[in-house]
């Protein structure tokens, strides 16, 4: 990293994001879409992709720092699958598929799973590494219960559950996208304001305490903010993996681990990456759509391995 690396990464990220946004509005199955339909369909979808991508990437960056573990993200910690389980239960109860119905139960699912993690973590003598394992187990539990529901459900039920398991941005509506933007923006700034505590945690929990950080209070605040963030993202777009894992690591490789720049850069790049991935999901097998979660995983995993091996020696 040189002194200008964060600024350079910000400029490239902004250009990439703008390009993805413009193409998302222009390209699609119908080449000459009515401007009205662009505003009704493609604009909300691009906006939602940007908000969800930014939210997942920032949640991933904060959770990785909090748990001092590079494998942490909403998906691996089980918070996403708690949210998906909540959504499927909401659907099973016959709630409407919008913010007031299934969105609310998805949200509750994320918070319940995060609360279980927080309860385990606040018990004395429960080490952080075990907390990650507990999160992975919660994730399995949530996904298995969703799969159980799928095994018992009819075709429509399976379709609905798949939406939550694989991630899908096609249900975006303008009002919902704007609401998600506002919530995600607020929560990202909350997490960003904790940059000093997150920086101190880079040296380990003991050193962070020695440096004057109130670690239990920090852990609680970050976990709550990150869970709310995941709740908003999953309840509007289902489970989308890899964005939360790959984007922060990508930024760290080039711009360092200090959170004053890591968090805004993760937000910017997360937004750009998910808009691009959704564009790919819409166009790759046109006129059919791929689940966007599959696209992020297909591209994210190899790209991440490449960056990992290439950048190792230069830092």
């Amino acid at each position: 990293m040189r002194a200008g690396a964060p600024a350079r990464l910000a400029v490239i990220g902004a250009a990439f994001g703008l390009l993805a946004f413009t193409l998302s509005l222009k390209l699609g199955v119908a080449d000459h879409l009515d401007p009205e339909l662009i505003v009704q369909l493609r604009l909300p979808r691009a906006l939602l992709a940007a908000a969800v991508g930014a939210g997942l990437a920032v949640a991933g960056a904060a959770l990785q720092a909090l748990f001092a573990n590079p494998l942490c993200e909403p998906y691996t910690l089980g918070i996403s699958s708690g949210s998906a389980l909540g959504a499927v239960l909401g659907g099973a109860l016959g709630l409407a598929a919008d913010y007031g119905g299934v969105g609310l139960t998805a949200f509750a699912g994320a918070l319940v799973f995060a609360a279980v993690l927080q309860l385990l973590g606040s018990r004395g003598g429960f080490p952080t590494s075990s907390l990650l394992l507990a999160g992975v187990m919660l994730g399995f539990l949530g996904s298995s219960l969703v799969a159980l529901w799928m095994a018992l459900a009819d075709a429509a039920g399976i379709q609905g559950a798949l939406f939550w398991l694989l991630g899908d941005l096609s249900r975006a509506r303008l009002q919902g996208a704007v609401l998600t933007w506002a919530a995600v923006g607020l929560l990202i700034s909350t997490l960003w304001s904790r940059w000093r505590g997150l920086d101190a945690l880079l040296l380990g929990e003991e050193d962070a305490r020695a440096l004057g950080i109130d670690v239990p209070a920090l852990r609680k605040r970050v976990l709550i903010s990150a869970s709310l963030l995941v709740g908003f993202c999953v309840s509007s777009a289902g489970m989308i993996g890899f964005v939360g894992l790959v984007v922060p690591h990508f930024i760290r490789r080039f711009a360092g681990s200090l959170h004053s720049s890591l968090i805004p850069l993760s937000a910017l790049w997360g937004a750009a990456v998910l808009m691009a991935a959704d564009l790919g999901a819409r166009l790759a097998a046109s006129p059919y759509e791929l689940p966007v979660g599959v696209v992020t995983a297909l591209f994210g995993a190899p790209l991440f391995l490449w960056v990992l091996t290439r950048a190792r020696g230069t830092r």
Partner: peptide
């Protein structure tokens, strides 16, 4: 000693 999990100069 320290063992940071993430790159840190």
């Amino acid at each position: 000693g320290i063992r940071p999990e993430f790159p840190l100069r």
